[in-house]
Amino acid sequence: MKTLAVILVAFLAAIQAQLWLGKGGLARGVQLRAELRAQDAANEQARARNAQLQAELLDLKEGLEMVEEKARLELGMVKPDEIFVQLRR
């Protein structure tokens, strides 16, 4: 009977050691939670960027004003019979 109790205590100790120190133990759980928080922050930044791009896409689809503004500012385009004047300060 004593040997059975010793064997059961040894198994219990081995299981507890695996829980605390093993590959899937508590330290790994803490590390995974930290990685999860970092990934959540990156996802939030990506969501904000996606919302900004979605708003810009909606503007491009619905209005020519943004297209015209981008063409003027980024490409230096002008309308026919229009004179481009640039002022420097």
Rank of each mutant, 00 (worst) to 15 (best):
M66G: 02
M66D: 02
E44L: 14
G22H: 02
A46M: 07
E74W: 00
A14K: 07
A5F: 14
G22T: 05
R33W: 02
E56D: 07
L8C: 11
Q54E: 13
E44K: 12
G22K: 06
I7M: 12
L19K: 13
I7G: 03
Q31C: 09
L12D: 12
L8Y: 05
L21H: 14
Q86F: 00
L75W: 05
L21E: 13
F11A: 12
L60F: 03
N50L: 09
L57I: 03
N43P: 00
E74V: 07
E69P: 00
R49G: 00
G63C: 04
D81T: 05
D81A: 07
I7V: 09
R47E: 13
Q45H: 08
Q86M: 04
W20S: 10
V30I: 15
I83E: 06
L12I: 14
L36C: 08
M77N: 00
Q39N: 13
R88S: 02
Q39V: 07
F84Q: 03
E62F: 09
L19P: 02
G29W: 05
D81E: 08
Q39F: 02
G76K: 04
F11Q: 12
L4A: 13
F84H: 04
K79I: 00
L8K: 14
D81H: 04
L26N: 08
V30E: 11
A42C: 02
P80Y: 01
D40G: 02
E35A: 09
V78W: 00
K61F: 07
G63K: 06
L12E: 10
Q18W: 15
L73H: 00
F11C: 15
Q54G: 09
L4F: 05
V78Q: 05
K70G: 00
I7Y: 09
G22I: 01
E44R: 13
L32R: 07
V67N: 03
L53G: 06
A5Y: 11
L8V: 14
V30T: 09
R47Y: 02
A38R: 13
V30G: 03
E35C: 08
R49I: 09
L8D: 10
M66C: 01
R47T: 06
T3I: 15
E44I: 08
Q31V: 15
Q18M: 11
E65H: 05
A10V: 07
G76R: 01
V30A: 11
K79Q: 01
L12T: 14
R28L: 02
E68D: 06
V67I: 14
N43C: 02
V6W: 11
A34G: 12
Q52W: 02
V9D: 11
N43T: 10
Q45C: 03
T3H: 12
A13W: 10
Q54I: 06
L53K: 01
L19D: 12
A42L: 11
V85Q: 00
Q45M: 09
A27W: 10
R72H: 02
D59Q: 14
D59F: 03
E35W: 08
L87V: 14
V30C: 04
E69W: 07
W20L: 13
A17P: 05
E69A: 11
G22A: 04
I83G: 01
G25L: 05
A34Y: 04
L36T: 14
